[in-house]
C-alpha cells in the first residue's frame, strides 16, 4: 500500500463545522476520524513546504546572502566593475594631458599631493592621477576578464575532452585522455611568468600580449579541474543509470556529466580573475604591458611609480591598493561561492 507520505490522511475530509461537534465525545465514528485527520493535517501543515523549487545555485545564492565575506567581496567587485565601465564619465581629465607639467619636478623631488582639483594629486609628468587610476580600472578589468575567458574556454575544451574520453571512451578514450593530460602537464610545468615573457617576446609588448600570456597560463588549471570533476561525476550512479537507459554517450557527457562538473570551474574562474589581475600587473610592471600612455594600466602605473618610491610613495600606493583590493574582492567572492556550493556544507 504505497501512499505518498505527504498525504497520509486519505480519509480526511476537511470540514471544520463537523470537527466542532467532536467535542461532546459521542459522535459517529466517521466524524471522529475526520476530526483527527484534520488535526493531524494542521499539525503537519506547518512543516510541509509545498512546491518550493530550489536548485543548487539558488541554494548557494541564499547561503551567500547571509555570508559577510560574500557580501564584502560582491560590493568590492560591483564597485570595481561600475568604475571600470563608467570610467570615461568618471575621469575629470584626459589621462594623457600633462596640464600641470610645470608644477612637478621629479629631479628636484617636487611632487603635488591631493588637492581640490586633483583628488589624488599629480604623477611625475604632471598628469591627473585620479583620472589615470579610474581609466586604469577599465584596462585592468579587461585584462582580467579576457585572460580568464581565454583560460576558461581553452581549458574547459581540453579538460572536457580529456574527461569525457576517460569516462566514456573505454580503452581508446583512456589513451586520448593520457596524451591530453601529458600535454597539460607540460604546460603546467612552465612557470607563468616565463611563459608570459616568452609570448611577449614573440608578439611584442602590448595589452594583447599580457592577456594572452596570462590566459594561456590558466589553461592547464582549468583543464585539470574540469577533468577531475568529470572523472568524479563519471563514477556516480546516475551516469551508469543514463547508460543503462541507453542514452548516447555524447549526450551523457554533455547533458549529465558536464553540467554537474561546472561548479568548481565557475568558482575557479572568479579566483582566476583575481590572479589574472595580479599576473597582468606583474607583467606590466616588468615592462611587457601596454606601452601606450593613453590607456594606463595599474601594473604599468606601478612600474612607473617605482622610480619615485622613496620621494613620492603615494604614486605607487594608489595603483597597488587598487590591485590588492580588487583581487581581494574577487577572491572573497570566489571562496564564498566555493563554500556555498560545497556539498558537505549543504543540507
Amino acid at each position: 500500500m504505497p501512499t505518498t507520505p505527504s498525504s497520509p490522511n486519505q480519509s480526511g475530509v476537511p470540514d471544520r463545522d463537523e470537527a466542532a461537534v467532536a467535542e461532546d465525545g459521542r459522535v459517529p465514528l466517521h466524524r471522529r476520524k475526520a476530526a483527527k485527520a484534520d488535526r493531524l493535517a494542521e499539525l503537519m501543515g506547518t512543516r510541509v513546504d509545498e512546491g518550493q523549487i530550489s536548485g543548487i545555485w539558488i541554494d548557494a545564492f541564499r547561503r551567500m546572502r547571509r555570508n559577510p565575506m560574500a557580501i564584502t567581496g560582491a560590493v568590492i567587485v560591483v564597485v570595481f566593475v561600475v568604475v571600470a565601465l563608467l570610467s570615461p564619465l568618471l575621469a575629470p581629465y584626459s589621462p594623457t594631458s600633462q596640464a600641470w607639467g610645470s608644477e612637478v619636478f621629479p629631479n628636484r623631488n617636487e611632487f603635488v599631493g591631493p588637492r581640490a582639483e586633483n583628488w589624488l594629486g599629480l604623477d611625475h609628468l604632471g598628469r591627473d592621477l585620479y583620472s589615470r587610476f579610474v581609466i586604469g580600472a577599465r584596462q585592468t578589468l579587461m585584462v582580467g576578464v579576457v585572460a580568464t575567458l581565454v583560460g576558461f574556454f581553452f581549458g574547459a575544451l581540453l579538460g572536457g575532452a580529456a574527461g569525457s574520453c576517460a569516462v566514456l571512451g573505454g580503452r581508446w578514450g583512456a589513451r586520448v585522455d593520457n596524451v591530453l593530460m601529458r600535454i597539460i602537464d607540460m604546460m603546467l610545468a612552465l612557470p607563468t611568468l616565463l611563459l608570459a615573457v616568452t609570448v611577449a617576446a614573440l608578439v611584442g609588448p602590448s595589452l594583447t600580449t599580457v592577456m594572452l600570456a596570462v590566459g594561456i597560463a590558466q589553461i592547464p588549471i582549468f583543464a585539470r579541474l574540469l577533468r577531475g570533476a568529470m572523472l568524479a561525476q563519471g563514477n556516480r550512479d546516475y551516469v551508469l543509470a543514463a547508460q543503462s537507459l541507453g542514452v548516447r554517450k555524447r549526450k551523457i557527457a554533455l547533458t549529465h556529466i558536464l553540467p554537474n562538473s561546472m561548479g568548481p570551474v565557475i568558482v575557479q574562474s572568479t579566483l582566476t580573475l583575481a590572479t589574472a589581475i595580479i599576473d597582468a600587473a606583474a607583467l606590466s610592471y616588468l615592462g611587457l604591458g601596454n606601452p601606450d600612455a593613453s590607456s594606463p594600466e595599474w601594473g604599468t602605473m606601478l612600474a612607473e611609480a617605482q622610480r619615485f618610491l622613496s620621494t613620492a610613495p603615494a604614486l605607487a600606493v594608489y595603483p597597488a591598493l587598487g590591485i590588492i583590493i580588487t583581487a581581494l574582492g574577487f577572491t572573497l567572492l570566489g571562496e564564498s561561492l566555493r563554500e556555498a556550493l560545497d556539498p558537505k556544507l549543504r543540507k
Binding site: P5, P8, L40, L43, M44
Partner: peptide
C-alpha cells in the same frame, strides 16, 4: 507507511502519529 521525515512536533502530540 510514510518516511521518518513525516512526523509532527513532540510538543503537539505523538511524533509517530502521521505514520
Amino acid at each position: 507507511r510514510g518516511s521518518v521525515n513525516d512526523n509532527i512536533d513532540w510538543t503537539d502530540g505523538c511524533a509517530f502519529a502521521p505514520r
